[in-house]
Design a protein around this nucleic acid. Sequence first.
RNA 1: GGCCAGUUCGUCUAACGGUUAGGACUCAAGAUUUUCAUUCUUGCAAUAGGGGUUCGAUUCCCCUACUGGCUACCA
Length: 517
Amino acid sequence: MQTEKVRVRFAPSPTGPLHMGGVRTALFNYLFAKKHNGTFVLRIEDTDMQRYVPGAEQYITEALNWCGITPDEGVLPDGTIATEPCPHHPFAPYRQSERKDLYSQYARQLVSQGHAYYAFDTPEELESYRREAESRGETFIYNFAFRNRTANSLNMTAAEVAHRRKESNNWVIRFKIPENQTILMNDMIRGEVSVQSGTLDDKVLWKAHDGLPTYHLANIVDDCLMEITHVIRGEEWLPSLPLHYMLYDAFGWQKKRPMFAHLPLLLKPDGKGKLSKRDGDRLGFPVFPLEWTSTSGEKSRGYREDGYYPEAFINLIALLGWNPGTEQEIFTLEELIEAFSLDRVTRSGARFNPEKARWFNQQYLRTRSDTRLVQDFLPVLQKKGIATTPLKAEQVVSLIKHRASFVHEFWDLSYYFFIPPSDYDPSYYKKAWKPGTPGILRQARDILAGCAPFDIPSIDKALHQWMEKEQLKTGQVMNALRLCIVGKPQGPGMAEIMAVVGKEDTLVRLDQALNKL
RNA sequence: GGCCAGUUCGUCUAACGGUUAGGACUCAAGAUUUUCAUUCUUGCAAUAGGGGUUCGAUUCCCCUACUGGCUACCA
């Protein structure tokens, strides 16, 4: 076991709404932290001014909050990002744009120690190098071979460098990747990974155009300063792991280097590639936890707005790329914490399956109490202009809830409790309406009219006594009644339906049907 | 193209050298039922291909194929 306290972080960049893959990364970080009595930190990586999207930061905190995976550190109780150090948020600010000066100092340190250098290539120059290499069928790598034949601070005098930096702001700081070295890395999920340094680019650590560090620099500096012990992130980061290892080495932070775990990606339900924003609209399911409206007014649906319970959502994404090793599938957050282990994270990408998502929500809906379901159903009825009592709504809910996966399906499953049928299903009519039916129904009407109290046992008893006496089959009576009262071959038992509809309305519906059919 | 990672039923996955390759979702059939749904039972369905290693490979190694990620002064 660890001797130091576990500290993990979720570090999204506010470039748009967090999608379900991001939520899963956050969840796994959270579960790992809680499992080990550690701390779950939220840090905002907003070092790309071009892609910054207003509102994205609030979206992230709100989404995490809805999921019940609230950070321990980095977010104030009011949901905003901590900007001033305090006992609860000792490493504030947690927004990287507010930590610029800090990174600048570390970038200069790398340059002065010979691990990084100033480079003066323009974007246009780089682009033409790339095209040129491509036309030869090769890949342009900005490595030792390239940096040796181009102007940079490694082959200029200090005075020249100072002059060029003064002349224009068109300089970047690049990391000096060793010429020929095997980088050995360890991933908690994938095991040993190795790569040759010669295949790597001298990555930019400090950008010219906005005067901010890149992800790589800011991320490593912050993880170290914030005493992060485990980095759990998506597999798309695996290719930059060697650079991150080398940065820790260059800073002399080998001992502070966290453990790394790269999570398999979430893939599109069909076809190819990783799950993207567009897939939701195309395939008809949400990819975001919460609804999101882009600045251009484009709306993307959310699990919350689609009627999913946060518990169901968490449960379903937890099982994408992780399994407990048992056959248990339904987990509370507490149970997930208890069962979670990085050892049981799978290595291959997981294709998201919307069908199973429905099933998860159904499982949770079934555990909800009737009173709680009624609370959600009542507003729907109100919107439909249905005047009803909470008691009747609860009776209805208890009769139909096991037929639904979502509360918003309740209306289609239960409208006939509230409004008489306006038409009668033709094929059901054919099946249930025989020459003798009107006569039987008239008798049934009398039986029901005399039935008191008008509840399930009395209705059942009265009807069955009469049917036995008249030698009538249950089917021919019940189907006829169902046709008249429901209008279609669906729903719970007829005694249940009539009891809820009430004697008066039941008789009205019978008369109406006898007239119409 | 280069680098890195991955590959068990349609999908999520179990099996950490020895199982009739298990479970869940979906689908199908049957039972129950006044209808529909539920419930229960049953069924369909997989180790990418080829070489090794081994008494024995889903499992270990190699090759091929395929999939995914990365290949930005984005994260």
